[in-house]
Amino acid sequence: MAKSYIDELLDLAAGIVELADAEGTIDKRYWKKAKAEHDALQANFTRVRKEYVDSLLDTPDGYEQAYSLTLEELNITRENCDDTWIPAVNYVSDNLLPYLQKESRRSPSTRKFFKYLPWFIAGVAVVAYIAVSFLALTPINHAIDTQAGIKERAAAVQKVIRYDYLMNTHVRKGGWIKGALFWPLEPTEYEIKGASEFASLAFEAKQVSVQEYGCSPIAQEYGNGPSKDEVAYLSETAERLRDATLQWKKPPIITTIDAARFVGKC
């Protein structure tokens, strides 16, 4: 196994050295392609090097003999190979032996920890990702004409507005990357329905505040969704109605009208 890894590393090193030596003579038209090939060879070299070192150090005896055996193998190769292969052997020596020496200083338990750490982190991230989606849920369990029902729907409209802002688009649109990233925060259909109910109630309260208390109306954008002023009004009204210090009146719709007046400063 060790021999096959060394051979593979030598083949990759030969390609890397050849491209590096030809860097100054490569036609500019082909430089980009040569650079991509060089980078691919280096990436493969790093991968094979790690596989080789892992194969040696995964056994108890490897910690005692890995470095000496590899050094001996490279010295024998250097002594018996054609002169044209010497640069490749030197490249392998310079880029394999220090890495092997560093890894061999780590205890088996430490190496296993770092080997499986990315999987552990990925697992924790998935659990957290799913947990956030559950924690972000906004329950709507009460009728809209109750204090609890209004506050629940106020929370739903805040969630919809926050998601729209993060996606920089409407709730049901957006690139798949952003959609995946913000999926835990995406409102459910039930939450969107609750947000719509709150919007209807809040705009009715706003209309009453305009007609009865002389508040200024809000600019609308018919056919293009809510205007920025309407979104701001809904956000501020929801925040006001979710304030723990707010004194509610009966019926609760009166407090919603008071909130519209508070936001409109009238």
Results as ranks from 00 to 15, higher is better:
T46M: 08
L57I: 02
G174Q: 09
S200Y: 09
W248G: 01
G174I: 04
L74S: 11
D58S: 11
D82S: 05
K173G: 04
Q158A: 09
L137Q: 15
S109L: 07
S4D: 15
L166D: 01
K173Q: 06
Q101K: 15
K228S: 04
V160G: 01
D58Q: 11
S4V: 12
G175Y: 12
C81G: 04
D145F: 09
L137W: 14
E8H: 14
K28I: 02
I144R: 12
K193M: 14
E221Y: 11
L201K: 07
A122H: 12
N168H: 05
E51G: 04
A36H: 04
K178L: 13
F203Y: 14
L117C: 09
L166E: 01
D82C: 00
I16F: 01
T59S: 13
D258G: 07
P98M: 08
N168K: 09
T237A: 08
Y213V: 02
I86S: 09
P251D: 08
L9S: 06
T84V: 08
Q211E: 15
R49T: 06
F182P: 05
R162E: 09
A43E: 15
E221L: 11
Y165D: 04
A88S: 09
A125D: 14
S107D: 00
P251N: 06
A259H: 03
A34F: 09
A20V: 04
I144Q: 13
I161D: 03
Y165F: 10
H142M: 07
L74D: 10
Y5K: 02
Q207G: 05
P226A: 07
E8F: 12
L97H: 01
K228V: 03
E197S: 13
E236C: 02
L56Q: 11
D11K: 15
R240Y: 06
A180H: 13
F262M: 03
L137N: 13
A14E: 13
G24T: 00
C266L: 08
L100V: 05
Y213Q: 05
A88R: 03
T146C: 10
L100E: 06
I254S: 08
H170P: 02
D21Q: 04
I6M: 03
G15N: 02
L56V: 02
S93L: 00
L185H: 08
